[in-house]
């Protein structure tokens, strides 16, 4: 199998992830989209590793680490989402806007 196929699939997967991040308001869904992106990376790495016949198997090692990282991220992410939900009763990303630039009065003539 030519390396292009898995790479194109990975790219598509990554794009879907990006779309999900952009389109979803629910934080959990955003989290899942990020997982898609990470899995695209994994697919890439494994495919390259095989294709390159890397004796050190750098790609595979990295894949393992990425999986671990993804797990950790999900763990912490869900914990944070929980905390947010407890405090705010919502997990919609675009409704968490307490922090942000305050609305300014019109520009004066200082400066």
């Amino acid at each position: 199998m030519h390396v292009v196929y898995p790479v194109v699939v990975a790219a598509l997967l990554f794009s879907i992830g990006v779309y999900g991040v952009l389109a979803r308001r629910n934080t959990i869904l955003v989290l899942m989209s990020v997982e898609l992106m990470l899995n695209a990376v994994n697919l890439n790495l494994v495919a390259f590793d095989v294709w390159l016949r890397d004796v050190l198997h750098g790609g595979q090692v990295l894949t393992l680490f990425v999986i671990v990282i993804a797990a950790a991220e999900v763990g912490i992410g869900l914990a944070i989402v929980l905390a947010v939900y407890r405090n705010r009763r919502t997990i919609d990303l675009d409704r968490l806007r307490e922090l942000g630039e305050p609305v300014e009065p019109p520009v004066g003539d200082r400066g």
């Binding site: 990975a10 990554f14 992830g17 991040v21 934080t27 955003v30 989290l31 990020v34 992106m37 990470l38 695209a40 990376v41 890439n44 790495l45 390259f48 790609g59 990295l62 990425v66 990282i69 991220e73 912490i76 992410g77 944070i80 989402v81 905390a83 947010v84 407890r86 405090n87 705010r88 990303l93 968490l96 307490e98 922090l99």
Partner: peptide, 23 residues
């Protein structure tokens, strides 16, 4: 919590992008 969430979301997206580049 809100700050953590924002940091988290932006960070993981950036990480994913970087990892794609690394791959």
């Amino acid at each position: 919590s809100e700050a953590a969430l924002k940091l988290f979301v932006v960070s993981v997206v950036s990480t994913a992008i970087m990892l794609f580049g690394v791959s």
